[in-house]
Amino acid sequence: MSEVHHIHNQDPNAGAEQRKAIWKTFWILLILTALEFVIAFTVPHGVLKISIFIVMTIVKAFYIVGEFMHLKHEAKSLIWSILVPIIFVAWLILALLLEGDAIFQAIFG
């Protein structure tokens, strides 16, 4: 393992491509957040607005997890071990939102 840093130390351009990718991700996140602000004040409140926000949030999450947390470049087995458990969260969302709506109908419906 000790030979690794000697190689890297001699090359001043090492990691330049990676740094470029980092800043590209930064700009994508920044522009998406700015767009979210524009949408918050221009699109009327409703299903469309919420759907746009959820899609944009997932895109931002993709870039943070994929690029910043480097998951996109890990072994396939690691990617799937992290992503598959999220199914439980999807189930939780479905179950509790249906339950919440049922309570609303029972009290105010």
Partner: peptide, 21 residues
């Protein structure tokens, strides 16, 4: 991953309260 579940639980219960109000 375990922390994801904790935060999901908090945010989803927020959604649950909001939907029942």
């Amino acid at each position: 991953i375990s922390d994801t579940f904790t935060f999901s639980a908090l945010l989803v219960s927020y959604g649950y309260q909001r939907f029942s109000f």
